[in-house]
Design a binder for these strands. Structure first.
Lengths: 351, 351
DNA sequence: TGTTAGCACTCTCTATGTTCAAGTGCTAAC
DNA sequence: GTTAGCACTTGAACATAGAGAGTGCTAACA
């Protein structure tokens, strides 16, 4: 059976209406409010056919129709109309990003907060993959007790740190020296390149062999996100949506968001090529729970990955609003970081 | 009216029974199961009198009695019997703390996880107050762009970091020098002492005046906890308890735990002298929601504050179990950190 | 004076039945 | 292909009745 234009139109009406009202849509309301040139009986026939095609379901015979996950996917692909943000919302974004941004961690939190506030959904964010980040600076700080703190600063000011073991006999001076040597060695290298540091380098710096190998191990572990890299904002926003009057849905939701690992999997495993990614219900490949949708955007500016941001909420999500917000925040972010990059270039020129 | 021994006994039975079953307790069940030498009518009289004293309430006339917050407080003060952990639980604690502990952040997470697992409640933890921590090491790392990363390592390996502005003209060498000078200056000082660094010191190091003052500002901000210092574990554990079949309770709970600031206030504002602290329902002074209890313990070892740990859950909480777990975890922690301190002393001796 | 048996009373919970409105599917006519 | 009309299904809302649980009160008892 083919999807006639009228079928598409009706499907769009059903999805729009259901997203707005959370009430199953009846043939009568469609015929009266949106398709005044045909009768409800005609709509009824079309609805029955859309149901057969898998786009609609009903809870019970006299309950009106509700879109299936398949319908939402179709809606996003073909039916959805691009929205615009209100002036209020645009202002809000501008103001949020006008302050001195500070480091990336603050930026991530800020972006996540803005997205949650504007969409009224729970926002999840994860910082950029650190694989390709270039090491800008590296230091070893003595902590006593045979331990040292390894601190790394990378290009986009991502900071990672961890404790490593050092020989107890090593003095503060020696550590400081080692720190300098190792820093010089890795400066400008990407984290992913560290893996390829061979034994010959270790030999070359035989004096610091043990420390060096500890450092390399630590650097290697930096490729996967830490708990702290996953930011969750506005968990209580779910109560703004009627599906979470049902305790089972809340249970499900809270269980998912209470594990940062799971969150990272849900929003982190996408292709970097895709700008906006929508996962609706259980898609087989994803870990998204049956009754949830996740919409994420991966931002980048000046060739630099800036992390993945998105919302998690009920399948009946206001996709238009969410996607519009994500796009606008993306633009603002690009501008912000873009300007910063430009400033920097100017600085270089002046030197 | 005085509290006779029998009243106390009956109150204890009611609280114990209600904690275990979550079902209002009837005079009949008390007389049959626990006080076989008197009739249910007698118990009924006592219950009525306990209700008049404010210890018991009933949802409706034929619903049995339920302890009031006042009853729980009295129970904890006077009636509760100390419990013992099962061998399983003790094993669990031992295993959890046997691994190489790494830094304090990991330790906090670990402790929080153990507490949540053993009690089946949501655990909240907050790291030690950093005020009195002595600065062990301090470094400034260039990030380019007129920014530098300030990293602090303190005595118990608490790590703090933040970005500060530096003069654009400052070279890496100069920064490195400044870093050394400032590090030497503050080494061994407590964070709280930094506040008292006067202008004369700034003048003395006039060369690094701007950087120094930025560093001091940053250090001053370290006294209040960051979001990352508040650890929440096992939020989904609440669904193990029947009070959270009620959506309103869940709403309340989720709203509280979704703000780290509020959590920090709830568990962080207690007197350091008190080892175990119980807040039941709204006590006026506390921000604990009406229908929640918070039990916390502040740990320390070798004179060192190790942070505050606890659980948040329904008022009908298994206080015996929770307090027993907190005490045992405290002991294990003390042993762990105590041994570490001892090792360190031994090392010093060998030198 | 404290304890007890007995009983009326209150309240919840469950099952049951009834009615109402909403929405559909189907059929026959256009 | 479209439509009007109608029978059918279902859930929601409401009233009713009976069972069960637990209490408070009273009067009798030790």
């Amino acid at each position: 059976m083919k999807m006639s234009d009228r079928k598409k139109k009706i499907l769009q009406i059903v999805v729009d209406e259901y997203i707005n009202t959370a009430v199953p849509v009846s043939s009568k309301s469609i015929a009266e409010k949106h398709l005044t040139d045909v009768s409800s009986a005609t709509v009824r026939n079309e609805l029955a056919s859309l149901e057969e095609l898998g786009y609609l379901t009903q809870f019970h015979t006299s309950g009106g129709r509700v879109p299936s996950p398949q319908a939402y996917r179709f809606y996003i692909e073909e039916l959805m109309e691009k929205g615009n943000l209100s002036d209020n919302d645009l202002d809000y974004i501008e103001r949020a990003f006008s302050e001195k941004s500070g480091d990336v961690e603050h930026l991530i939190k800020n972006v996540s907060r803005v997205i949650s506030e504007l969409t009224d959904y729970t926002s999840v964010a994860i910082g950029p993959h650190t694989d390709e980040e270039k090491i800008r600076n590296l230091a070893l700080l003595a902590c006593g007790d045979g331990k040292a703190l390894l601190v790394i600063v990378t290009g986009s000011r991502i900071l990672r740190d961890s404790f490593i073991d050092i020989p107890e006999s090593m003095s503060d001076e020696e550590l400081s020296n080692a720190s300098h040597v190792i820093s010089k060695l890795f400066e400008g290298k990407a984290l992913s390149e560290v893996k390829e540091v061979g034994a010959e380098v270790l030999d070359e710096f035989s004096q610091y062999r043990q420390v060096m190998s500890e450092v390399i191990d630590a650097l290697k572990s930096y490729t996967r996100p830490r708990d702290e890299d996953v930011v969750l904002t506005g968990a209580d926003k779910i109560f703004k949506h009627p599906e979470y009057e049902d305790i089972d849905n809340v249970k499900n939701f809270l269980t998912v968001i209470s594990s940062k690992d799971r969150l990272a999997e849900i929003i982190g495993d996408e292709d970097d090529e895709i700008q906006i990614n929508v996962k609706i219900g259980s898609t087989g490949d994803a870990e998204v729970p049956d009754d949830c949708s996740v919409v994420t955007a991966t931002y980048s500016a000046g060739g630099k990955n800036l992390g993945t941001y998105g919302v998690i909420g009920p399948i009946r999500m206001d996709y238009t609003k969410v996607i519009t917000v994500l796009e606008n925040v993306g633009k603002a972010l690009e501008e912000l970081v873009g300007n910063k990059l430009k400033d920097k270039k100017d600085d270089t020129k002046h030197e």
